[in-house]
Amino acid sequence: MIRTKTVKRPELNLWEKLYFPEVFRGVLLTSKHFFKNLTLHAFHAIGLFRKIAAAVTIQYPEQLWKLPGRSRTRHRLTKREDGSPRCVACMMCETVCPARCIYIVAEEHPDPNIEKRPKSFDIDLGKCVYCGFCVEACPEDAIRMDTKILDIAAYSREEMKLDMNELLNPTIAKAISAKP
Protein backbone atom coordinates (compact mmCIF):
# COMPACT_ATOMS: atom_id res chain seq x y z
CA MET A 1 0.00 0.00 0.00
CA ILE A 2 1.32 3.38 -0.88
CA ARG A 3 1.23 5.89 1.92
CA THR A 4 0.66 9.41 0.79
CA LYS A 5 0.91 12.51 2.83
CA THR A 6 -1.77 15.03 2.09
CA VAL A 7 -0.39 18.52 2.23
CA LYS A 8 -3.00 20.89 3.48
CA ARG A 9 -3.15 23.96 1.32
CA PRO A 10 -3.34 27.21 3.20
CA GLU A 11 -6.92 28.44 3.31
CA LEU A 12 -7.74 32.11 3.29
CA ASN A 13 -9.61 33.37 6.29
CA LEU A 14 -12.39 35.91 6.00
CA TRP A 15 -10.09 38.88 6.49
CA GLU A 16 -7.89 37.74 3.62
CA LYS A 17 -10.87 36.86 1.47
CA LEU A 18 -12.09 40.43 1.76
CA TYR A 19 -9.10 41.14 -0.49
CA PHE A 20 -8.96 44.87 0.17
CA PRO A 21 -6.97 44.64 3.44
CA GLU A 22 -4.47 42.32 1.82
CA VAL A 23 -4.13 44.58 -1.21
CA PHE A 24 -3.55 47.44 1.16
CA ARG A 25 -0.88 45.46 3.00
CA GLY A 26 0.86 44.60 -0.27
CA VAL A 27 0.82 48.14 -1.57
CA LEU A 28 2.06 49.35 1.82
CA LEU A 29 5.06 47.02 1.62
CA THR A 30 6.07 48.01 -1.90
CA SER A 31 5.43 51.69 -1.16
CA LYS A 32 7.71 51.47 1.86
CA HIS A 33 10.50 50.37 -0.46
CA PHE A 34 9.51 53.08 -2.92
CA PHE A 35 9.69 55.93 -0.43
CA LYS A 36 12.80 54.62 1.31
CA ASN A 37 14.65 54.35 -1.98
CA LEU A 38 13.31 57.67 -3.23
CA THR A 39 14.56 59.45 -0.11
CA LEU A 40 17.92 57.71 -0.36
CA HIS A 41 18.28 58.66 -4.03
CA ALA A 42 17.45 62.26 -3.17
CA PHE A 43 20.07 62.25 -0.41
CA HIS A 44 22.64 60.66 -2.72
CA ALA A 45 22.02 63.40 -5.27
CA ILE A 46 23.11 66.03 -2.74
CA GLY A 47 25.96 63.87 -1.52
CA LEU A 48 24.60 62.50 1.75
CA PHE A 49 24.45 58.91 3.04
CA ARG A 50 26.38 57.57 0.05
CA LYS A 51 27.24 54.48 2.11
CA ILE A 52 23.64 53.24 2.28
CA ALA A 53 22.78 51.75 -1.09
CA ALA A 54 19.44 52.73 -2.61
CA ALA A 55 19.45 49.89 -5.13
CA VAL A 56 21.06 46.52 -5.56
CA THR A 57 21.84 47.24 -9.21
CA ILE A 58 25.43 47.00 -10.42
CA GLN A 59 25.87 49.27 -13.43
CA TYR A 60 27.96 46.76 -15.30
CA PRO A 61 30.51 48.24 -17.67
CA GLU A 62 31.35 51.11 -15.32
CA GLN A 63 30.96 49.23 -12.08
CA LEU A 64 32.31 45.69 -11.80
CA TRP A 65 31.18 42.97 -9.51
CA LYS A 66 33.83 41.91 -6.99
CA LEU A 67 34.59 38.36 -8.07
CA PRO A 68 35.17 35.64 -5.48
CA GLY A 69 38.87 34.71 -5.19
CA ARG A 70 38.48 31.26 -6.75
CA SER A 71 36.34 32.13 -9.72
CA ARG A 72 37.60 30.84 -13.05
CA THR A 73 38.19 33.62 -15.53
CA ARG A 74 40.27 34.18 -18.65
CA HIS A 75 43.38 31.98 -18.97
CA ARG A 76 46.97 33.11 -18.73
CA LEU A 77 50.29 31.31 -19.20
CA THR A 78 52.73 31.71 -16.35
CA LYS A 79 56.37 32.63 -17.00
CA ARG A 80 59.76 31.51 -15.81
CA GLU A 81 62.16 33.97 -14.20
CA ASP A 82 63.58 34.85 -17.60
CA GLY A 83 60.14 35.60 -18.98
CA SER A 84 59.79 32.56 -21.22
CA PRO A 85 56.65 30.46 -20.85
CA ARG A 86 56.69 27.84 -18.15
CA CYS A 87 54.78 25.48 -20.41
CA VAL A 88 56.65 22.38 -21.57
CA ALA A 89 54.16 21.52 -24.33
CA CYS A 90 53.24 18.22 -22.74
CA MET A 91 49.78 18.42 -24.35
CA MET A 92 48.04 17.40 -21.13
CA CYS A 93 45.71 20.40 -21.26
CA GLU A 94 45.02 19.98 -24.95
CA THR A 95 44.13 16.33 -24.31
CA VAL A 96 41.93 16.93 -21.30
CA CYS A 97 40.08 19.91 -22.71
CA PRO A 98 36.45 18.79 -23.19
CA ALA A 99 35.79 21.59 -25.66
CA ARG A 100 38.98 20.90 -27.65
CA CYS A 101 39.75 24.55 -27.81
CA ILE A 102 43.45 24.48 -26.99
CA TYR A 103 45.81 24.23 -29.94
CA ILE A 104 49.50 23.70 -29.15
CA VAL A 105 52.37 23.31 -31.60
CA ALA A 106 55.50 22.06 -29.84
CA GLU A 107 59.14 22.63 -30.70
CA GLU A 108 62.48 21.69 -29.18
CA HIS A 109 63.73 23.80 -26.31
CA PRO A 110 67.26 25.23 -26.68
CA ASP A 111 68.03 24.26 -23.07
CA PRO A 112 68.92 20.53 -23.10
CA ASN A 113 67.47 20.14 -19.56
CA ILE A 114 64.03 20.98 -20.86
CA GLU A 115 62.59 18.78 -23.52
CA LYS A 116 60.03 20.90 -25.33
CA ARG A 117 58.39 24.29 -25.44
CA PRO A 118 55.32 25.58 -27.26
CA LYS A 119 55.91 27.16 -30.63
CA SER A 120 52.39 28.45 -30.62
CA PHE A 121 49.69 28.17 -27.98
CA ASP A 122 46.16 29.23 -28.94
CA ILE A 123 42.96 29.07 -26.94
CA ASP A 124 39.62 29.67 -28.63
CA LEU A 125 37.55 31.39 -25.96
CA GLY A 126 34.53 31.10 -28.20
CA LYS A 127 34.55 27.37 -27.55
CA CYS A 128 35.96 27.23 -24.01
CA VAL A 129 33.46 26.20 -21.35
CA TYR A 130 35.56 27.54 -18.48
CA CYS A 131 35.69 24.13 -16.82
CA GLY A 132 39.20 24.63 -15.51
CA PHE A 133 40.34 21.12 -16.42
CA CYS A 134 43.36 22.52 -18.25
CA VAL A 135 44.54 24.17 -15.03
CA GLU A 136 44.03 20.96 -13.08
CA ALA A 137 45.84 18.85 -15.68
CA CYS A 138 48.94 20.97 -16.06
CA PRO A 139 51.94 19.37 -14.35
CA GLU A 140 54.01 22.56 -14.52
CA ASP A 141 51.52 25.10 -13.14
CA ALA A 142 51.95 26.77 -16.52
CA ILE A 143 48.32 27.70 -17.17
CA ARG A 144 46.05 29.49 -14.75
CA MET A 145 42.59 31.03 -14.87
CA ASP A 146 42.99 33.85 -12.40
CA THR A 147 43.09 37.01 -14.52
CA LYS A 148 39.63 38.17 -13.35
CA ILE A 149 38.86 39.17 -16.93
CA LEU A 150 35.32 38.15 -17.78
CA ASP A 151 34.29 40.08 -20.85
CA ILE A 152 35.22 38.40 -24.11
CA ALA A 153 32.74 40.31 -26.23
CA ALA A 154 33.75 40.42 -29.88
CA TYR A 155 32.12 40.87 -33.25
CA SER A 156 33.56 37.71 -34.81
CA ARG A 157 34.72 34.26 -33.72
CA GLU A 158 38.24 35.05 -34.94
CA GLU A 159 38.57 37.84 -32.41
CA MET A 160 37.83 35.44 -29.58
CA LYS A 161 41.00 33.44 -30.20
CA LEU A 162 43.96 34.16 -27.93
CA ASP A 163 47.51 33.51 -29.12
CA MET A 164 50.53 32.83 -26.96
CA ASN A 165 51.56 36.46 -26.63
CA GLU A 166 48.13 37.46 -25.36
CA LEU A 167 48.05 34.52 -22.99
CA LEU A 168 51.42 35.45 -21.56
CA ASN A 169 50.46 39.09 -21.13
CA PRO A 170 46.80 39.10 -20.06
CA THR A 171 46.82 42.86 -19.63
CA ILE A 172 46.74 43.22 -23.43
CA ALA A 173 43.03 43.70 -23.82
CA LYS A 174 42.01 42.58 -27.23
CA ALA A 175 40.65 45.55 -29.14
CA ILE A 176 37.16 44.95 -30.40
CA SER A 177 36.93 46.07 -33.98
CA ALA A 178 34.65 49.02 -34.45
CA LYS A 179 32.56 47.60 -37.24
CA PRO A 180 30.46 44.48 -36.72
Binding site: S31, H33, N37, L38, A54, A55, V56, T57, Q59
Partner: peptide, 10 residues
Protein backbone atom coordinates in the same frame (compact mmCIF):
# COMPACT_ATOMS: atom_id res chain seq x y z
CA UNK B 1 11.28 54.32 -12.50
CA UNK B 2 8.55 53.61 -9.97
CA UNK B 3 8.73 49.88 -10.50
CA UNK B 4 12.52 50.11 -10.18
CA UNK B 5 12.32 51.97 -6.90
CA UNK B 6 9.72 49.57 -5.56
CA UNK B 7 11.98 46.63 -6.39
CA UNK B 8 15.28 48.17 -5.19
CA UNK B 9 16.54 48.67 -8.73
CA UNK B 10 17.68 51.77 -10.59
Amino acid sequence: KQSALMQDRI
